[in-house]
Design a protein around this nucleic acid. Structure first.
Lengths: 112, 112
DNA sequence: CTGCATCCGTTCTGATACTG
DNA sequence: CAGTATCAGAACGGATGCAG
């Protein structure tokens, strides 16, 4: 974990605003497209599609199509995806707990 | 760590490509503007300036100006910034170790 | 249901030039 | 040294309509 240049490359992948949230939503098992769409507040259909395709391309998750009517597509973390999910958990937890502090710091900064 | 909506808010802050790298560069103590510019490969002066200002605004780091000639500005993590750095360490470590695997997955995907 | 294609306004970024 | 200002091109992101 010494090369900042490499870190930068991967942050371009996992540092995506939506990617980490998608990974998080898949932590308890496979989910369908519409389930993800509903549970990730504010994501558009387009962004979810793009994000899922990129994550599939990077080997973070798998996409399984069931040829039934109506169509049914399931997304699931790969083993590598699960290790990513573990690596991001601390950051997400930090985010939640520090949101009020950040908001306060920002308000004070803007007040000057 | 249950509200995905809140998580999304903070990811807009810390999920920034450059922000995590700046935080990482400050882990061993204060650094000057030019030091950061040199050590973060590929960042433009403008992006470093913007990133630093945002992180200062959010209470992640402090900016100290020494009124000497030539000018001297020092950036240092706040206590909150240090907890953020700890929370991001696993993700950065993951990034480094999995970069080859991601590249391989991507190459295979593109080959189809 | 699960997308893809297209349009189009907004935002981001780098390059460049200039300042205290 | 550490910025700010400006500009133009690139990338992002949402809305809409269509398809298997």
């Amino acid at each position: 974990m010494e090369d900042p240049c490499q870190a930068r490359e991967v942050l371009g992948i996992v540092g995506d605003k939506w990617a980490l949230l998608v990974v998080r939503m898949l932590k308890d098992g496979p989910r369908r497209f519409t389930e993800l769409k509903r549970s990730i507040d504010g994501i558009s259909q387009r962004m979810l599609t793009v994000t899922l395709r990129d994550l599939e391309r990077d080997g973070i998750l798998t996409r399984t199509v069931f040829a039934v009517m109506p169509p049914h597509v399931s997304y699931e973390l790969t083993p590598m995806g699960r290790t990513l999910r573990e690596a991001t958990a601390p950051l997400l937890e930090w985010s939640i707990t520090h949101l009020p502090l950040i908001a306060a710091a920002r308000a004070e900064y803007d007040g000057r």
